[in-house]
Amino acid sequence: MKRALLSVLMLGGLLGGCVTANVDEMTFDAPVAGMVDGSIVILGRRHAPDYDTEPDFIDCIGNHISRGSESISVIQERQFVDALYPWFEPRTAPLSIESVGRLMMLPSVANKLEDLDLNYMIWIDGRTQDTNSSGSMTCGVGPTGAGCFGFGTWGTESEYEATIWNFDDGAEVGKMSALTSGQSYMPAVVVPIPIIAPVQDTACDSLGTQLLQYLSAGS
């Protein structure tokens, strides 16, 4: 029994690693020196009709950057959006760095952004979604117990694009994207065992590493 469980876990580990990642980077103006005592904010785009960029993905990127560099202070998305309400809501969020210039004409907004000592604003647009699925599973309950039997599999795909705005120069300075995909499996012999491909986590690591390299360049 123990050996069977170990085999399933090993298989899970192997299959869990079945994720392909592809990261593209396009930088217009790479920083020559890393950030010193500055702050950045990472925001998700939420104006598409059929999806929102997931808040937990934004947190994941922020944590990745915070862990990677002590000199970069990452402002939490919720804290930033609340502090500047209503100027970063889906209806009002600036779609270009030029729109931020117009927003800065409001004294209260300009003062708040100055207080935050913001160097970079990074917008993330994209989502993770399940693609194909196949297989079947039957579950039943009886007086003697319950159980499932079958096999299911589904694909997951993450596609995110990061756009970097430099607040000191008032310019869009780079774009990066991450495209990852993977296949998850769920065999069930009495107990279903989900073997989930960490597709979104891989996208977070890929994009977070690229952003960290950009922000820490030269330091």
Partner: peptide
């Protein structure tokens, strides 16, 4: 809650 926040944004702008 998001709809209320949007209502406020719409009102202010």
């Amino acid at each position: 809650v998001m709809a209320l926040r949007d209502a406020g944004a719409n009102f202010i702008t």
